[in-house]
Simulated scan of single mutants.
Amino acid sequence: MSEISLWNESLVAGSLTPSNQKSYEVTKRIHEGKKPLCSVVFNFIDPRFYNFFVTAGGNGINMYNCLEDGGISSLHSYTDEDKEESFYTASWTCILLERNPFVAAGGLKGRIRVLNLQNNIIKTLVGHQGSVNEIKTHPMIPQLVLSASNDGTVRLWNVETGICVLVFAGSGGHESAVLSVDFHPYDMHRFVSCCMKTTTKVWSMKEFGKHVDESFTWKDDPKTFQTQVVQFPVFTASDRMTIVECNCWVGDYILSKSMTDKILLWQPQLKENSPGEVTLDVLCRYPIPKSYLGHIKFSCDLPMNYVSIGNQKGKIYVWDLKTRPPVLITVLSHYQSKSVIKQTAMSTDGNTILAASEDGTLWRWDVKRV
């Protein structure tokens, strides 16, 4: 599909067709502090807590509840004992014997803190030799999480037992900092990862299913568990143009954000005479003006109908993922939002958008009620 022209910054939702129109308004803003907010994530693993979300920034983790009236209720706050810690990422997870969800958070120091809803540390997962850039939870087995690190590895953890089950690294692994990971939505064995050296890799855990099962029944010290190293991905794709800093699955397609002011939706095409290597067959391009700064990450609603992402001017772009050619739903802006939006979070239906800002402000946008 040919690249669509860059949308004018002045475009508003009212200029779009009614079927694609969504008009949002700011319903709440909270200034958490002077330190940048790097991450904001809704809880998609437990329907009882779909309105819960978590933010990460500096050495603090905050849990909130999105209220139906547009407000935000604070649940608990956690401040790490290490004042030099800086959290970059957080993900909701669970422990089978507990009724409530947990949060796994990581960042500068490479440790992963597992916190309960009272923000008490349940476990600390240690193994990475570099910063943790992203944590993602398995959609079908939420006791399992992936962590992407500056040490060039991806690790699979069992938060219930505290075991590092698998390490994805070696001959076919990433050669630089891994920035993003995401589990496949319905192939429980696959995930995608991307790194600083413009490469995207798809991995499979299928051959290690027995090993994953053993991590749930291990009774000895977690340090004695025989962590397995996975050296070769299913395939590797390279943009060769720019760093890929965020990726996720949309069905069997991959949505990627690079440092070239755009998001790509693509599918891998095998290269002839090059086993394990693929090219990017780009299906759609979603321009995002002023988003070339690093560590700006997008989010989608639960059914993957929409994608939202901020830029370095404090604006948020919302695209329709189901429309061909792509349709820009709206551009959200506010006179007080001038700082980089590091990450957005969309509610299950896409009607609420949260934004984590570099100036320490949390923004809530909601679809206007008729």
Rank of each mutant, 00 (worst) to 15 (best):
S2V: 12
S2C: 09
I4L: 11
I4V: 15
S5N: 13
N8H: 12
E9N: 06
S10T: 14
L11F: 07
S15Y: 13
S15Q: 14
S15C: 10
P18F: 14
K22W: 15
E25Q: 12
T27C: 07
K28P: 02
R29C: 09
I30S: 07
I30Y: 10
K35V: 12
K35D: 15
P36H: 09
L37Q: 05
P47N: 14
N51I: 04
A56D: 02
A56N: 04
G57W: 02
G58A: 05
N59L: 00
G60K: 02
G60Q: 11
N62H: 03
Y64P: 00
L67Q: 10
L67P: 02
S73K: 08
S73H: 06
L75Y: 05
T79G: 01
E81T: 15
K83Y: 11
Y88D: 03
Y88S: 04
W92G: 03
I95R: 05
L96E: 15
L97A: 12
L97F: 13
G106M: 05
K109Y: 13
G110I: 00
R111M: 06
I112G: 08
L115W: 08
L115Q: 07
N116M: 03
Q118K: 00
N119M: 09
N120E: 15
K123D: 14
H128G: 08
Q129R: 06
G130C: 07
G130L: 04
N133L: 04
P139E: 10
I141R: 06
P142F: 10
V145M: 06
S147H: 06
N150Y: 11
N150L: 01
D151F: 06
G152L: 05
T153R: 05
E160G: 10
G173L: 00
G173R: 00
H174D: 04
E175D: 11
P185A: 11
H189T: 13
R190H: 11
F191H: 05
C194L: 01
C194R: 03
M196H: 08
T200E: 06
W203N: 05
V212D: 08
E214V: 09
S215Q: 07
S215A: 09
F216G: 10
D220T: 06
D221W: 10
T224H: 13
F232D: 09
A237R: 01
D239N: 02
T242E: 03
V244G: 04
E245V: 01
W249K: 00
V250D: 14
L255N: 04
L255E: 09
T260R: 01
T260C: 04
T260L: 03
T260E: 13
K262Y: 12
K262H: 12
K262Q: 15
L264W: 05
E272F: 13
T279W: 11
T279R: 01
T279K: 02
L280S: 07
L283E: 15
L283H: 13
R285D: 03
S291R: 01
Y292P: 00
Y292L: 00
G294C: 07
F298L: 02
S299T: 10
C300D: 04
N305Q: 13
K313H: 13
G314D: 14
Y317I: 07
D320T: 07
T323A: 13
P325D: 15
V327E: 15
Y335S: 12
A345D: 08
T352K: 05
I353P: 03
E358S: 11
D359V: 03
D359E: 09
L362D: 10
